[in-house]
């Protein structure tokens, strides 16, 4: 454990390497943060291609930047850039929604034929659609805080990404969860 910690270069060291044009430093940062940035984008966009596109763009920006974020800000910076790209897409795109609806309908119709776990896939597609509908009825801030937190960001990271005080994360989160639960239950009842 200790040995691996010693062998793992810090973000600061890697950022320094990146500033000097060391590609290995960039690769290490990419491998360290890509899954997390992708995870956020996927939850926001619900589409693998779009989420990969966003995550890739985030790292293009990191690679091309002249003024790089400082170590403590790196994670927050990456998420914030990712979130902004997601928001741009969310606005214009009803594609995802259509696709999810189609997927749900198809899942219902084709039930048995879907691979590898037809029943499970169908249930999951429906469940996702329901969660998204509930989220869509929340104010943007509530939606963002729930998705960021669900993606595993700490309060400090959530605060940095959303531009709010770390002390207010708990309050916003409690309110968002309450609203979400309410809308989610109401929509579930409508479905039944």
């Amino acid at each position: 454990m200790e040995a691996s910690l010693l062998l793992t270069p810090s973000d600061a060291l890697l950022l320094e390497g990146l500033a000097k044009g060391d590609e290995a430093s960039f690769d290490a940062l990419f491998l360290r943060y890509y899954p997390r940035v992708y995870g956020v984008a996927f939850r926001f966009l619900g589409d693998r291609d779009e989420a990969e596109d966003v995550a890739q763009e985030v790292f293009l920006k990191l690679h091309g930047r002249h003024f790089r974020p400082r170590e403590q800000q790196l994670a927050g910076w990456l998420y914030r850039v990712g979130l902004n790209l997601c928001r741009n897409r969310e606005r214009g795109s009803s594609r995802r929604q259509r696709r999810e609806e189609t997927a749900t309908t198809e899942a219902r119709l084709l039930g048995q034929d879907l691979e590898p776990d037809p029943a499970g896939e169908a249930v999951r597609a429906e469940e996702r659609a329901l969660v998204r509908r509930a989220l869509a009825e929340l104010p943007e801030r509530s939606r963002h805080i729930l998705l960021l937190r669900q993606s595993g960001l700490s309060y400090a990271e959530v605060a940095a990404v959303m531009g709010i005080a770390p002390g207010s994360v708990g309050t916003l989160l409690a309110r968002a969860e309450e609203r979400f639960r309410e809308r989610y239950l109401a929509l579930s009842r409508e479905e039944d």
Partner: peptide
């Protein structure tokens, strides 16, 4: 409330086969 919201929202996480391995993503 946290438990209920967390369980529902977990459905949005990328499932198996919904994310490229980081090394593949790096190549892309």
């Amino acid at each position: 409330q946290r438990e209920a919201a967390g369980t529902a929202l977990a459905a949005l996480a990328p499932g198996e086969g919904e994310a490229s391995p980081p090394v593949v993503a790096l190549r892309a």
